[in-house]
Design a protein around this nucleic acid. Sequence first.
DNA 1: AATGAATGAGTGTTCATTCAT
DNA 2: TATGAATGAACACTCATTCAT
Lengths: 230, 230, 230, 230
Amino acid sequence: MRKEETGSPGHVESLVTDPKRVAERRGQILRAAVKLFSEKGYYTTTIQQIAKEAGVSIGLIYQYFGDKDDILFLSLKLVIETYEHEIPPRLEGIEHPVERLCVALWAYCTIIDGLREATVLAYRFTKSLRADRRDLIKEGEFRTNRLLENCVRACIDGGFMRPVNEYMLVYQYVMFCHAWALKHWAFQGRYTPGQYVAEGIRILVEPFLTKKGLAALAALRRRTADFTHE
Amino acid sequence: MRKEETGSPGHVESLVTDPKRVAERRGQILRAAVKLFSEKGYYTTTIQQIAKEAGVSIGLIYQYFGDKDDILFLSLKLVIETYEHEIPPRLEGIEHPVERLCVALWAYCTIIDGLREATVLAYRFTKSLRADRRDLIKEGEFRTNRLLENCVRACIDGGFMRPVNEYMLVYQYVMFCHAWALKHWAFQGRYTPGQYVAEGIRILVEPFLTKKGLAALAALRRRTADFTHE
Amino acid sequence: MRKEETGSPGHVESLVTDPKRVAERRGQILRAAVKLFSEKGYYTTTIQQIAKEAGVSIGLIYQYFGDKDDILFLSLKLVIETYEHEIPPRLEGIEHPVERLCVALWAYCTIIDGLREATVLAYRFTKSLRADRRDLIKEGEFRTNRLLENCVRACIDGGFMRPVNEYMLVYQYVMFCHAWALKHWAFQGRYTPGQYVAEGIRILVEPFLTKKGLAALAALRRRTADFTHE
Amino acid sequence: MRKEETGSPGHVESLVTDPKRVAERRGQILRAAVKLFSEKGYYTTTIQQIAKEAGVSIGLIYQYFGDKDDILFLSLKLVIETYEHEIPPRLEGIEHPVERLCVALWAYCTIIDGLREATVLAYRFTKSLRADRRDLIKEGEFRTNRLLENCVRACIDGGFMRPVNEYMLVYQYVMFCHAWALKHWAFQGRYTPGQYVAEGIRILVEPFLTKKGLAALAALRRRTADFTHE
DNA sequence: AATGAATGAGTGTTCATTCAT
DNA sequence: TATGAATGAACACTCATTCAT
């Protein structure tokens, strides 16, 4: 009679079995949901509105999601996994650790720039998820953090950065990137994303670089003109 | 959907006229509201629950607040003003700019530590306020930021800190303090608030200090044992 | 988040505390519910309709009942307890065991006649209750059966009825009385309740009476003219 | 609310024309429906569940039934006709009227024992049918009753039973048989079907038999050991 | 000033039914 | 014939707000 809390927390049941169709429809509905959740918040967005925005019927939504919590969960998962999946390709082919770190920050900030509202959404409504799912979202964030952590460690190991509290430094980087979304009203108009990252590197990377590291950073800057090539 | 926006955005109507009684009752109700909003979120907390927690009737709440949005607004205002009002007394009598900056960070973090859930609340539900009131909350945050900004400027002006992008640095300080609440699950168990601030100073203050500034910081550390004197 | 299955199965929560008001409002709502459930069945009756029939708002119903199942449960309990409570007063002052048995059957049938639709309701929807509550309803029926059982036993103990399988005989009596409601279309127009009971006594009581018992029955009949004094 | 009542009340439209295929498919679907309706009730069973249980698609069901009411109607008809069709073969070759009556009761009870849940189903949801169809179901029950009536009449006509109110007695027989399903929780564990019928005959048949009738019953009992030969 | 019973618009969700394939 | 994805009206239930006392 009661809805069973079935299986693993990350699993979302669909009444439709064809995986390709499930992926398509879920994508279609999630795009609408992320848009509306971002604009109006989770609780003030109705299923009705999501259906209308996605151009489907109410009933269809319930063929692909178990309940509204499922939609929020997959929305946030989508956002969190975008970070995780889009940063690595941007680092491909880049060898130098300092360069990798700077490009990672740049990549993270630009990805967030494209998902600004959705990033704020994750901050606002992750807590609204069922506890077990909240943890899955946090794990996703953790894996993204690890990408930055690896960059920092490579810098230190290569002698480009002096030993620092990596854990803390990585969290400064994370907060710096997230701030582009969270405090956008404070940076908007003042900085382009490129300038924002350039300033961030000056404050959060440069001070920790060794001579070797600074040389690499200078070279990078010469090539990229401060990431302001938008 | 939204009720007529009457009068000035910050004004909250009360049917009761005696200002002392208004202040008392509102305080009583807001304490309950902040507690519940922090625990369960704004939308999942009901007026019934607030009334019960505050030990008053439902009707009474509507004698002191116009609607639920009023309660949220004054709850967030209460939180934001706590920062603004509690930092300055903690700086009183402290003269040295470097010391003032470090103590300001320390003060901000400990105040947030006492309002951890409420700080997260502000991040989550400021956007749920009517737009004009949202701006008032942001202004409150701005005024708090200015306190840090003044500390940074004094350091630079006194030659204790080399010239940096003040604006960016202050925001990084703000994010650092807020992160103690926002990412508490990541720091909890790893750092005490004192250790957290000490590490923050190492990463976000020390690199920008001049020789003079470093000497001051060393003196401070000798006296305070890294803020770990909890 | 989920509704707690609280306390004893027979308890129905009310948000209103004043017991007198609760009794009044519940009575008002239950009368409407029993009427509609009887006419249209449980599932096809909406809360909306109950509210309208009772002349109250939808919300009010949920101040006095937890959910629709609660309304069904108390409706059926009301019906089942009517039998249990109304038969004993009808037996008051009657001493002779045979007379008590006959009057008990007569009382049960007339009570059912006044609750014909509701009796059918109990047959139809007791199974729709949560299992623990279903058992409570059955217990109520059991207690009513016991009233008849006591009458039969007194007849046997007094030597007015020859030894029989009491348990089975009582169930024949029960089915006989219920049949007045369950098969009303088959008896309607053919028999008045009085005639129905008189025929029932002829078939289900008379054959088991001893000489002493038959004498008592004859005396009773002389006085009551076959229960046809409606 | 109700769909147009088209054509004769007993007619159920099918989009498929081949009668053999219709009979097969309907049987397949009805078996699933009766099972689920019996277990969970009519309203709480969905077409989806019936389709799954029957191993067919949802769409297929609508090729063989007009709507859900059709399925209920044919389900109940199936049950009611089982009684009607299975009793006569069980009486074949039995000549003596008293024996025929007893075997008829025994047959009816054992058939009901095999359809216990379905019998309860008929009691619960016949009223949920459209009125005209409800009458058809009642007619089916009537025809079954007539089988018993014929047995009683033969007993009386043959001088094996003294004159009684046949109509009432037959209904008491019917209720007795139905009670095996309706009050199964009261008899379960106490009696086997055989014992139940034996006790019923003692209470509902024996008292009305003449000397001749009693002799026949005694003979029958000697042969069958009280129907307890399960 | 204070109460809390009463209201009803609005929500998430279900499920009989349809129809393109 | 047979499928099952798609539909949307209808439902149970919630909760901010009102108002008689």
